[in-house]
Design a protein around this nucleic acid. Structure first.
Lengths: 248, 248
DNA sequence: CGTGTTATTGACCAACATCAAACTTAGTGG
DNA sequence: CCACTAAGTTTGATGTTGGTCAATAACACG
């Protein structure tokens, strides 16, 4: 398709993301490529949106790692989800007027803001895009369900292995990493906030994962040494990610 | 409105539920009243839908308490959500073809099955209903987020108090209970499955809630003695429920 | 009344948290 | 380029929450 060559790399990320979970035709892709983007770079550890605020735009992650989180009594933090290139981590704000969580950049990130109205109009004009966005939001929900089970009923070793499996599969499905690579620009404290563990215990659990020969670590870049065994240890089954093409 | 008098009580529950979270006009209500229902009664502890299955209908809860749950390695169970009269606990199945969790009746229940196609057609014909359903699904997601924080970062006392606060507010918003009443037809083991705790610890934590003068219990019927203090203890703020009319 | 489920209790244990210190790494400014 | 600093990681010691196991008590229901 000729016109596709004119699509900006930023728009291509959104198109690629939606393409990984729903069927789009060329006209859909072209329509997505016309969405208005307000670009912004966000420094590491900066909030993109705060709990309690009202949004008029949705955030599209272009580069970097973004998370949603909540604070609970006593200053403890819970990370609710990780978001990669192409994700729309506050898509729900189109229908839910007040943010029930915050959005933050875990690494330096580049994002685009898209007006709610532009998304609404596009969904009306091209139902396949409306469906794809709906599916994106529902998969989001499915991942939350898995996280409830993860923090509620799994051991520390399982929890951390599970987060690694999930993030790896999602990154692979978006072609963001090569095989066996898992770059998680997270401190161990942040990984603890995602898994409901203390930073100290995360440290010890990572050591255990290395000792078991499942991963190796160099800086914040992990390498998956034994993918089968890691999934086994994590009790991981990618079905809940509802990807169009399951990975091996 | 005259025609409303002809609405079946079962349809009225759905209308009431959606009305509690979105704005519907009389035409919307009338359209909802025409949805085809396949009624079914479900015995306590029976599954309504299983993880891995494919659905062609969505389930509408009419009476009783229904939950979603997942099993994790080692036979441990995690309850993901509770569903009350008017809820659509597998609405996502319209867009996600394989169930990523199971659906089960915690008490004897009455449910209706509505064909996906009927929902789709109605959403197309009446966008306000499509929006209301979308909002229902997104609030579902918001509640999951709160549960992640609940099991991830709260103490046993907070967790159980929180589940009580949430369920109480939701029941009140649907007019299912009178003030201060909280009927939870759950065994303590099931409450543990929802909060990530053991049955034994749930027992001790409930005793603690009583000792603190926050609740009293008679059979499975709890009475909230000190609502302010219970919310405080639970770190509860109902904003995440995104109700149209916040309760005091 | 008997039987199976649920609630309660006690004793003990394991996983994970907390605290504090040492060590490593990555920036930063001179 | 190096010294200084702040942030992150690692380790050890110790504490606490909540789990496990097992026995008993209370209920629910036919």
């Amino acid at each position: 398709m000729e016109q596709m060559s004119q699509v900006s790399p930023d728009h291509a990320r959104l198109i690629h993301q939606l393409g990984s979970i729903a069927v789009l035709d060329d006209a859909d892709r072209l329509a997505l490529a016309g969405l208005p983007f307000r670009l912004k770079t966000v420094a590491e550890n900066r909030d993109i949106a705060r709990e309690g605020s009202r949004r008029t735009e949705v955030c599209l992650v272009l580069e970097g790692l973004v998370c949603r989180y909540k604070m609970v009594a006593g200053g403890r933090r819970q990370i609710l989800s990780f978001h990669l290139s192409g994700d729309l981590p506050d898509l729900q704000s189109i229908h839910l007027d007040v943010m029930d969580h915050s959005l933050s950049a875990l690494s330096a990130a580049r994002v685009a803001f898209i007006p709610h109205e532009a998304i609404r109009a596009l969904s009306r004009k091209r139902p396949a895009i409306g469906d794809a966005l709906m599916r994106h939001a529902l998969i989001d929900g499915s991942i939350f369900r898995e996280w409830i089970a993860n923090v509620g009923r799994r051991t520390a070793l399982e929890r951390i292995a599970h987060v690694m499996c999930e993030t790896y599969v999602r990154m692979r499905s978006l072609n963001l990493v090569s095989e066996g690579e898992l770059e998680l620009p997270l401190t161990q404290a942040e990984l603890g906030d995602a898994t409901g563990l203390s930073n100290v215990h995360v440290n010890r659990t990572l050591q255990e994962l290395r000792r078991l020969g499942l991963i190796t670590t160099l800086k914040k870049k992990h390498t998956i040494v034994d993918w089968d065994q890691l999934q086994e240890t994590a009790d991981f089954d990618s079905a809940y990610l509802h990807l169009r093409y399951a990975l091996t």
